[in-house]
């Protein structure tokens, strides 16, 4: 349904040009949840903002690539045409429910704004739809709540409202950028449950951006692991969790503490991600990788397909590396 090819996004600053996204390929199927995971600054939010064409320009710019959605290339679309896609076909949910809502407008006004903007509806019809949405996202006394302001809602309730606003025009794709990070765990559990319910009822596709592997294990179908502006590994949930091939994916999975396992020392990944002002020439993870070889620091690895759904960018998949590994052990 959505296909992104070779996406590059840069930001021009006084300090130089930041290459935030450096060649991202991904696709989303109908009715599925794709999770993009990675650490802060890896480009996962920039990628999703680029899909929505929300990169502020200047300083940001999509320098190369294609975003194909329902046969159209969003990169070359006019701003006016893009306005008819945002909120109608593709919606977005932001991290912080405290700042995503306008404090001076009632919840009802904010809910119905999208409807009035994009669809010819009467006031009555808009209100009926708003009440329906409030019901779907689980807000009690919707009739009364419509007249209230955001400050009268708790964090979890506000996030439900934000979800209702995003879904009111029945989009086909929902981009959720860290939707539960600002919430407490018990509220997070409620919201995740809500996502599953909504997807079942409306069949919407979801791109979920997060750094929490637990959340991913719960609701994703496929996972893309991002590092330093590139997707280093992509696969189904099971492929990524049970057969990870990229050393970064493996390290990430090992470094999270598990509630169900006994303690001990955590396997931390030493070092920090590279500076994207001058990204390294070869594999961006080479400097932190325990298996790094000479070639890794010079040439970016080619994509290897391990299965139709599982791709990894790593030189270890090369035949020559496998031979080398068979004869020696990693440093």
């Amino acid at each position: 349904m959505l296909e992104v090819q070779d996406l590059h996004v840069t930001f021009t600053t006084y300090g130089g040009t930041v290459k935030a996204v450096r060649g991202v390929d991904l696709y989303v199927n109908e009715g599925e949840t794709l999770a993009i995971v990675g650490e802060s600054g890896c480009g996962k939010s920039v990628t999703s903002n680029a899909i929505m064409r929300l990169i502020p320009s200047p300083p940001g710019k999509i320098t190369r690539g294609m975003i194909r959605f329902k046969g159209e290339d969003l990169v070359s679309l006019s701003e006016k045409a893009m306005r008819n896609i945002r909120g109608v076909d593709i919606s977005m949910i932001f991290q912080d429910p405290m700042t995503a809502l306008n404090p001076t407008l009632t919840i009802g006004t904010q809910l119905m704004e999208g409807l009035y903007e994009h669809q010819k509806v009467t006031g009555q019809e808009a209100k009926r739809r708003a009440l329906e949405m409030m019901d779907l996202v689980g807000i009690p006394n919707p009739e009364e709540r419509l007249k209230q302001y955001p400050h009268q809602f708790s964090g979890g309730m506000r996030q439900r409202i934000v979800i209702a606003i995003a879904l009111i025009c029945e989009p086909e794709l929902l981009i959720a950028d860290e939707p539960t990070t600002a919430l407490d765990v018990t509220i997070q559990a409620q919201i995740l449950e809500l996502f599953e319910k909504i997807q079942k009822q409306t069949g919407v596709s979801i791109i979920l951006i997060t750094h929490d592997l637990g959340v991913v294990a719960k609701i994703a179908d496929r996972i893309a692991v991002m590092y330093a502006g590139k997707i280093v590994e992509v696969g189904t949930k099971r492929e990524i969790f049970y057969q990870p091939e990229h050393p970064y994916t493996k390290g990430l999975l090992r470094s999270v503490p598990r509630l169900d396992l006994k303690g001990g020392k955590l396997a931390a990944i030493e070092g920090t991600p590279p500076d994207l002002f001058s990204p390294p020439e070869g594999c961006p993870f080479a400097a932190r990788c325990a298996y790094a070889m000479e070639v890794c620091t010079h040439v970016h690895p080619v994509k290897t397909s391990l299965s139709p759904s599982h791709q990894v960018d790593c030189w270890l998949q090369d035949e020559r590396a496998k031979k080398l590994l068979a004869t020696s052990s990693p440093k």
Partner: peptide, 27 residues
């Protein structure tokens, strides 16, 4: 109990099979 069951575990098999206590309401 509710707090423990609300925390997602980074393992899809466990995540799919375990029972969850979802707390109603808010603090």
């Amino acid at each position: 109990r509710a707090l423990l069951s609300a925390i997602p575990i980074p393992d899809p098999d466990i995540e799919e099979s375990r029972e969850r206590i979802i707390l109603e309401g808010e603090l």
